[in-house]
Simulated scan of single mutants.
Amino acid sequence: MLRLPRTAGAAAAAIALGVLASAPASGSEPQLSEARVVAHFDFAAGRTPENIALERDGSVDLTFAFARQVVNVNKDGDTRVLATLPAVSNPKTPRVGKAVVLGIARAHDGTLYVTYATGTSSTGVWRIAPGGGAPRQIAKLPSNGLPNGLALDEYRGVLYAADSSLGTVWRIPRAGGRATAWAKGTALAPGAARSGGTGGTGVNGIKVHGHTVWVSNSDRGTLLSIPVGPGDRAGAIQTRATGLDGIDDFTFTGRGHTILAALATTSRIALVHPDGSHSVVLTGQNGLSNPTAVAVRNRNVYIPGAAYFTKRNPNLLLARMDRRVGL
């Protein structure tokens, strides 16, 4: 999910690159291995891969934030455009200033849902038919918000959208309609801007796992869980891990609570254990370029990197997961 430097972009990029250069290698027992880039994208064309959904045939769907595209990438790295979100006159997206397509979620029938942030009435959740086609807006979200991560709960028939600017988790009927503010609070809100141009990005990544909604807060470096309580109301927000600087989106490795998290600003992937401890398992030395999300299929780990800070080599990286991790 989106996390960008502010106007001092050159300085922020320089700082990010400095961190990359000093990033430690993975531990003596790497839980991810065989990392390789399967597709390179064009940064100048706005093809910055922001979020990911897995297809049954082994391909993946990606959102290209600044190109406003949703694409499919097959096993050979070939890219096919599934949809392009409509252009917006005078976009006023918070923190970004441009129209951007961010989160993506896939239903079992192949329908795709994406968040589109524009600073206009086009801001909200859009639906794309299986196989691609013209996108259709199914829910509006506040124009002064930044709807970022998106998760689908097919059991309850709802979508959850993480608003990084307003510090809110929105709940939207899968069929479309009115969005409601499902969860809010300081834990979800952005933090104060810091030196180097970062700051201002609160709740970001989001996943539904069992009867709980999990989210990340980029500014606070935290991983949080929100139980779905009686009447589908949000329960008390619980902090599950801290110290995950620059966390973007994340995924679970299996049925348990072990997580792989993308640490975008430092180009790292962290393995987060159920007790909240974490270790770095991939770095920029493995080909990461500001990773924004993680997806797992069996032992394959897919990692899109948007290169927001490095400004070079946005890509899709594939790694293999040790059997002991997916617990």
Rank of each mutant, 00 (worst) to 15 (best):
Tyr116Gly: 01
Tyr116Leu: 01
Tyr116Met: 02
Ala117Gly: 03
Thr118Met: 01
Thr118Trp: 01
Thr118Phe: 01
Thr118Asp: 02
Gly119Ala: 10
Gly119Thr: 05
Thr120Asn: 06
Ser121Asp: 14
Ser121Lys: 15
Ser121Met: 09
Ser122Ile: 07
Ser122Gly: 10
Ser122Asp: 15
Ser122Pro: 04
Ser122Leu: 07
Ser122Phe: 05
Thr123Arg: 05
Thr123Trp: 04
Thr123Glu: 08
Thr123Gly: 04
Thr123Cys: 11
Gly124His: 01
Val125Gly: 03
Val125Pro: 01
Trp126Thr: 10
Trp126Cys: 10
Trp126Tyr: 12
Trp126Lys: 06
Arg127Lys: 14
Ile128Thr: 00
Ile128Ala: 03
Ile128Val: 08
Ala129Arg: 15
Pro130Ser: 14
Pro130His: 13
Pro130Thr: 04
Gly131Pro: 09
Gly131Ile: 07
Gly132Lys: 15
Gly132Trp: 13
Gly132Cys: 14
Gly133Tyr: 13
Gly133Ile: 15
Ala134Gln: 13
Ala134Thr: 15
Pro135Ile: 07
Arg136Phe: 14
Arg136Gly: 09
Gln137Ser: 10
Ile138Phe: 07
Ile138Met: 11
Ala139Asn: 04
Ala139Trp: 00
Ala139Glu: 04
Lys140Asn: 13
Lys140Glu: 15
Lys140Ile: 12
Lys140Trp: 12
Lys140Leu: 12
Leu141Cys: 05
Leu141Asn: 02
Pro142Ser: 08
Pro142Gly: 12
Pro142Asp: 07
Pro142Arg: 09
Ser143Cys: 03
Ser143Leu: 12
Asn144Val: 11
Gly145Thr: 03
Gly145His: 02
Leu146Val: 08
Pro147Arg: 10
Pro147Asp: 10
Pro147Met: 13
Asn148Phe: 10
Asn148Thr: 14
Asn148Glu: 14
Asn148Tyr: 03
Asn148Asp: 15
Gly149His: 13
Leu150Thr: 02
Leu150Gly: 00
Leu150Val: 09
Leu150Ser: 02
Leu150Trp: 00
Leu150Ala: 04
Leu150Met: 08
Ala151Gln: 08
Ala151Pro: 03
Leu152Lys: 04
Leu152Ser: 01
Asp153Val: 07
Asp153Met: 07
Asp153Arg: 11
Asp153Gln: 10
Glu154Cys: 07
Tyr155Asp: 12
Tyr155Ile: 09
Tyr155Glu: 14
Arg156Val: 12
Arg156Gln: 08
Arg156Lys: 11
Arg156Asn: 13
Arg156Ala: 09
Gly157Glu: 10
Gly157His: 07
Gly157Pro: 08
Gly157Asn: 11
Val158Thr: 11
Leu159Thr: 01
Tyr160Asn: 01
Tyr160Asp: 08
Ala161Ser: 15
Ala161Ile: 06
Ala161Val: 14
Ala161Asp: 06
Ala161His: 09
Ala162Cys: 08
Ala162Ser: 14
Asp163Met: 12
Asp163Ile: 09
Ser165Thr: 02
Ser165Lys: 02
Ser165Phe: 00
Ser165Gln: 04
Ser165Glu: 00
Ser165Tyr: 02
Leu166Gln: 00
Leu166Val: 03
Gly167Phe: 00
Gly167Val: 00
Gly167Ile: 00
Thr168Leu: 05
Val169Gln: 11
Val169Gly: 06
Val169His: 06
Val169Asn: 06
Trp170Gln: 03
Trp170Val: 12
Trp170Met: 12
Arg171Asp: 00
Ile172Ser: 06
Ile172Val: 15
Ile172His: 12
Pro173Met: 05
